[in-house]
């Protein structure tokens, strides 16, 4: 089963993990990304492309589902304003064995960073700037072929 959500509401880890576990797999892998507070960021705002963003996330979820023979994939991405410590993204995968769960989880977060239309704006007090894309993210996504 594939679940994709792009939402302004906070991400509830217990609910999302339980949703992935409910598919009776032997291995569950999860990744949670949160807003870093170590470089003076006071607020982070995520913009997305309604319609295309959800379709892009469904596309990479379907790729992972087929490639690793998964039992469940959940991708939840928060949008709108956030503060340090808030969860931005959750990826959960369920498979019969751990290798497929762990590898597909890594694949999904790498691909999500380059293949889904989201844009981050950082605020440090009154200093507001859009985040530039990172070459290292493109390289990480490229390693999956």
């Amino acid at each position: 089963m594939i679940r994709v959500s792009v939402q302004p509401a906070p991400i509830d880890l217990a609910t999302e993990i339980a949703g992935v576990e409910a598919h009776g797999a032997g291995g569950i892998a999860t990744f949670t990304g949160s807003v870093r507070g170590d470089d003076g960021v006071t607020r982070l705002t995520l913009e997305h492309y309604p319609g295309m963003t959800e379709a892009a996330l469904c596309g990479i979820a379907e790729d992972a589902f087929a490639r690793w023979g998964l039992l469940a994939v959940t991708i939840v991405h928060r949008v709108g304003p956030m503060v340090p410590g808030d969860r931005i993204v959750f990826v959960g995968t369920a498979a019969t064995h751990r290798a497929a769960a762990l590898e597909s989880c890594a694949f999904l977060i790498d691909r999500l960073k380059t293949d889904a239309p989201f844009w981050k704006k950082e605020e440090r007090g009154t200093d507001i700037r859009w985040v530039a894309a990172r070459e290292s993210d493109t390289a990480a996504a490229g390693r999956w072929g």
Partner: peptide
């Protein structure tokens, strides 16, 4: 047609 900067999600 949508025009935008390189994406920065995740």
């Amino acid at each position: 047609v949508a025009i935008f900067p390189p994406v920065t999600g995740g």
